[in-house]
Design a protein around this nucleic acid. Structure first.
Lengths: 208, 208
DNA sequence: GTCTATATTAGGATAGAC
DNA sequence: GTCTATCCTAATATAGAC
């Protein structure tokens, strides 16, 4: 069974965005990539912005699903690591968003508030997880330290992938989310109980 | 005495780049801003890329000056805080670079290797400082923790300003470097001796 | 050095046939 | 749904007078 042209456009666009950056991708390039005419592309989407918008929506759905951690959940360190893994896989899949964030948000103002909302939810998820670890006695941290830590986790989750790929801008198609997870675990480590601290360290080692 | 047109172009460009993002700044906008004709602008610079290149060079000079920390220097926590302050002031001054980093580097390939070189030097500066603190017994940290910390400091120094201004994309002209310094101190805090840890905390408080 | 006018392109988008 | 051909606009850049 054949994939609908509409979806082929979206898939090809996402791949191109991630690979060479959204601003460098023209509608002609997209249509060329999947061997359709530019006119055909505009039959399915009324503008390039609409393509970006729809891809953003996919990302939004995936992420909202992921960060909906119940306030009172009891989370183990392993679950936390798994969560981070899922998160980074999603971010890698949509990394073009973060690589030219300011530019993209400035040209699609409708996305601004939604992006910020996602960011808040993500930070909130980190807070929920840390609070759970704290309740269990796994994590020892003051309130002000927790604030800084959650912000730091949030920032790092946004930019790790971009930062990492700075070292190899030439080949932007291969990104390893594992090292990002490792880095995040390292941020939390100092506040963990000795036992879990070593556990976190060991988890990170998986990725080398 | 009058400022040379050439410099007025550079100053106005930098201001506009920071304010609305380099990709959104046209040569017409720049010339308009300082009330000269677009033709005049092209008398002084043969392309917009040249303007970006020259501004980058200024940044490069400032930063190289800043990160040239002698290997064997003995650095106090206060000096470290001062260093961070200088660093963030420079980054804020040239924040447009970081806000659309991938885009800018992809369109000016000559800048790529130079930017990465700066990044390495910066990370090296953090390493030198941490090693100094370690020698003095102020900081206790393992080698692998140090690796992760320096990367984290480097990443945060790049993206803090962008991340912070995400919350107020509308008003991109006012940025407070102090909160970035605070965040960086927080990254180091867990590895500091109790005394210096509190000192670091106190330093951060200055900025609220 | 500075201006005005204009060339050049490239990219987004539409019209109308098939 | 898909194509070809074309329009429109905005941005970079140049030519030539002053």
């Amino acid at each position: 069974m054949k994939i609908k042209t509409r979806d082929r456009i979206l898939d090809a666009s996402l791949a191109l965005f991630n690979s060479i950056g959204e601003p460098n991708v023209t509608t002609l390039l997209i249509s060329d990539e999947i061997d359709i005419s530019p006119g055909n592309l505009y039959y399915h989407f009324k503008s390039k912005g609409d393509i970006v918008g729809e891809i953003f929506e996919r990302y939004e759905v995936e992420l909202l699903e992921l960060v909906s951690v119940p306030e009172d959940a009891e989370i183990s360190l392993e679950q936390q690591s798994f969560f981070l893994h899922m998160l980074f896989e999603a971010i890698v899949r949509y990394r073009f968003l973060y690589q030219d964030l300011v530019n993209i948000l400035s040209r699609h103002d409708r996305l601004q508030s939604r992006f910020r909302k996602l960011l808040r939810k993500k930070e909130q998820a980190f807070r929920t997880i840390c609070n759970s670890l704290r309740r269990q006695g796994i994590m020892t941290i003051t309130d002000s330290e927790l604030d800084a830590l959650c912000q730091q986790l949030s920032l790092t989750s946004c930019y790790w992938v971009s930062y990492d790929s700075l070292s190899h801008l030439d080949n932007r198609d291969s990104v390893d989310p594992g090292r990002g997870v490792f880095q995040m675990m390292h941020l939390m480590a100092p506040y963990l109980r000795e036992e879990e601290r070593q556990q976190a360290e060991a988890m990170g080692m998986d990725y080398f």
